[in-house]
Design a protein around this nucleic acid. Structure first.
Lengths: 217, 217
DNA sequence: CACTAATTTTTAAGTCACTGCAAAATTTGT
DNA sequence: ACAAATTTTGCAGTGACTTAAAAATTAGTG
């Protein structure tokens, strides 16, 4: 009784709609494709589309939950003695080195970036995503360090880390929009990231560092 | 030949629409008021409303340009030896002390905050505003220090300052939504701001400090 | 004042995301 | 095979926003 016909069909339909929508968006841009077209191409009614996806933006940005939890995960899985900032920087650089570009959403290359950058509503969505990503991190940090509810430090640190990350990613985005590949940018990007995080680290110090002999993972 | 009838009427009409819209939004919330209602109350057609304001959000957030240039102005007018961060912090604390709450948009008290917080599209607009505010600051800093185009430092610093500011303001907003007045929050807010900026300062140091004998204002 | 050009306002018709609801189709368990 | 639960669809909105052309207003000139 792992999965009934109903569940399977739902999963398939959802995936089909999302895939077809993404394809159309890539081919013609987000704002030049209507939900009705997506529905027609996926052979469902418009209402069914909205049954699976709350907004048109969700058709493309379906993995936002993962992105929003990314920093929390990195924080919770950080090594002994590693500070919040150290963990994020390490994970970012690892991702960069491994070619897994999880910080620029999607491994699809610059196609997604172009779609998002060209659409105001998608850009707005990404900003929202960044915000909640920082809020989640702040929560997690405050929680694990059981900080005083009136202590803004977790929120400040999370926001500053998020700001740094966004700036560095923004740099990469700009160069990718100019036509360069991730591989071509990587060395510069690494340098910029190290510099940007260093700028922040001297201020944050070891705040949030997990104490030795108390680590989780 | 200071101002013809036509210009005066335009100015008046624009102001009337904006004022009436703001009044309606305050009374019944942003999403419970249609543009058609605003138009009817202002005794113009819907198209005239859109003639003056590009979006419904602009009916309320009409002063965004000022907010977006705020940090640039503070930066450009900073005193001798004062760093970017020092200037922003000083201006923020001055505003707080003087009761001029220009960092929490509008002196109207918590009413605006409530309207904005209750409306997703307005919140999105505020996020966008914050972003361009940081971009403007980054531009101005890079410009005045004539930084290398590949130097991310101005952008990183601007983003981190913006993040800090947003966090502190967010703290105030939360307490105001809980019913407290600005005056009641002020002391805590001051302390939090000093702490948050201190957190950042140790990392930023004197970056962006105007060199002695070279100031502008 | 009269008359024309420029500008603003309105009217009308439409697009598109998204909602609510009831009917129809499908799946499930028995 | 039948009834209950669930999913899909059709239909009729709502509301922000666009476009284009007609109508009203204002400006400038003789």
């Amino acid at each position: 009784m792992s999965e009934g016909l109903r569940e399977r069909k739902k999963r398939e339909t959802r995936l089909r709609i999302s895939d077809i929508a993404t394809g159309l968006f890539m081919a013609r841009g987000f704002d030049n494709v209507t939900v009705a077209e997506v529905a027609r191409a996926a052979d469902v009614s418009v209402n069914t589309v909205f049954n699976y996806f709350a907004t048109k933006e969700d058709l493309l940005l379906d993995r936002t939950p993962e992105v929003e939890e990314l920093l929390v995960r990195v924080f919770l899985e950080r090594g002994p003695g590693e500070s919040v900032l150290q963990a994020v920087r390490r994970d970012f650089l690892e991702a960069l080195g491994a070619g897994h570009y999880r910080y620029g959403f999607h491994e699809g290359g610059d196609v997604f970036i172009r779609i998002i950058e060209a659409s105001p509503s998608l850009s707005a969505r990404v900003r929202e995503m960044n915000e909640t990503r920082e809020h989640r991190l702040a929560e997690a940090v405050a929680d694990e360090l059981d900080a005083d509810p009136d202590d803004l430090t977790p929120a400040v640190v999370a926001a500053q880390i998020g700001a740094t990350l966004r700036t560095v990613v923004g740099y990469a985005v700009r160069r990718m929009l100019a036509g360069e590949t991730v591989e071509a940018i990587a060395p510069d990007l690494r340098r910029q990231a190290e510099h940007a995080f260093a700028l922040l680290e001297k201020g944050i110090g070891d705040y949030g560092a997990r104490r030795e002999g108390r680590q989780r993972s």
